[in-house]
């Protein structure tokens, strides 16, 4: 028992160290890129400023210090969660991110939910009879989903459900303009409105969320379906499944117990990847639906040559990526003894 605890602790510490290394790498790349973009002072004050003001600012911002000193100072602030101040809005980047992250998180979690609820069961059913009509239908639908550009599908959805059918609201943010955000608990409107018991807000939040979430899930659900299917088919043709069959185990246990447990490992790993991918891939969907999330924030900042927010968003995306992988690693570690043995 204690050896198990120790092994798990070693595993966790190793993963955490590798996470820190990855985040350090991201910081370094972000630092290099922002320095390569030129002296931020010129961007800040424009071309006409006189030399004295420029020198003052450069000194004030520490840009006259040696590069390594700048780097460590930068590292120190970033690792404290301080991404500086936006040169466009003059608000701390961290505050902006804290305000916009829940919107993106809600969107991504909704898309993940759709993916998990639909794609995984369909993949499981498709694998049961490869080549059947149902399997081919699934393949066709995934092919269709993959080949449609995200933003275009979003626009079609808006056209059909808002403009033609008038059953969903205009694609403007997370709530009707007349409503106020529910009391902050998780900052996810769907959950907070339930906690507040506010059905009107919940309905509005849901009707705003549904189209962008479905649109976003189109970039994750098809691959999830296909990977679930492929993993299961591969497992079902393995020696150990033949063994279970050879000793008379009923089909139901073979499929839903022996095979599925083996499929969990690749499926979880892929879901972690999907989550990281979606967290950093919401830009187009957020733009189409005017969703006040991180993607839109990053794009807006780029328009204004405002680099601090971009570094912040990139760092955050990386953070979510590694955290998702950490969760997946912990789950597969507990399921698969072969990983524990490594």
């Amino acid at each position: 028992m204690f050896s198990w605890l120790r092994e798990s602790a070693i595993f966790l510490i190793r993963r955490l160290i590798s996470i820190i290394i990855v985040l350090l790498g991201v910081c370094t790349i972000a630092f290099i890129i922002t320095r390569m973009l030129g002296n931020p002072v010129y961007l800040l004050v424009g071309q006409q400023a006189d030399q004295e003001i420029l020198d003052n600012l450069i000194h004030q911002m520490g840009l006259d210090r040696p590069l390594y000193e700048q780097y460590f100072r930068y590292l120190g602030t970033v690792l404290q969660g301080d991404f500086g101040i936006s040169r466009y809005t003059y608000r701390p980047v961290l505050d902006e991110i804290a305000f916009r992250l829940p919107a993106t998180l809600e969107l991504v979690l909704a898309a993940m939910t759709i993916t998990i609820v639909f794609a995984i069961p369909l993949g499981i059913l498709a694998a049961a009879r490869p080549g059947s009509i149902f399997d081919r239908l699934c393949a066709l639908i995934s092919q269709f989903g993959v080949s449609m550009p995200n933003f275009w599908v979003g626009l079609i959805f808006i056209y059909v459900f808002y403009f033609l059918l008038k059953i969903l609201p205009a694609p403007l943010g997370r709530l009707d303009a007349t409503l106020r955000a529910p009391a902050e608990v998780t900052r996810l409107f769907l959950i907070d409105s339930i906690i507040a018991g506010n059905f009107v807000t919940f309905k509005s939040a849901l009707s705003h969320l549904i189209l962008p979430a479905v649109t976003l899930s189109l970039s994750s659900a098809p691959s999830t379906l296909q990977i679930t299917r492929t993993a299961l088919i591969h497992i079902l043709s393995s020696d150990y499944i033949r063994t279970a069959r050879a000793y008379g185990m009923p089909n139901r246990s073979i499929y839903y117990r022996y095979a599925l447990k083996n499929a969990i490992v690749p499926i979880i790993t892929m879901l972690a990847m999907t989550f990281g991918f979606l967290m950093s891939g919401t830009v187009l969907v957020e733009t189409v639906f005017n969703w006040p999330g991180l993607g839109l924030y990053a794009v807006d900042s780029m328009h204004h040559f405002d680099y601090e927010p971009i570094v912040g968003v990139v760092f955050l995306s990386a953070l979510f990526y590694v955290l998702a992988y950490l969760v997946a690693d912990i789950i597969t570690y507990t399921i698969d003894p072969r990983i524990r043995a490594e």
Binding site: S238, D239, Y240, I241, A244, Y247, K261, N262, R338
Partner: peptide, 14 residues
């Protein structure tokens, strides 16, 4: 009943 060759692969790893 049957005993296969390559028993290591014939047992369910999980």
């Amino acid at each position: 009943s049957i005993v296969f060759q390559n028993a290591a692969a014939a047992l369910n790893p999980l």
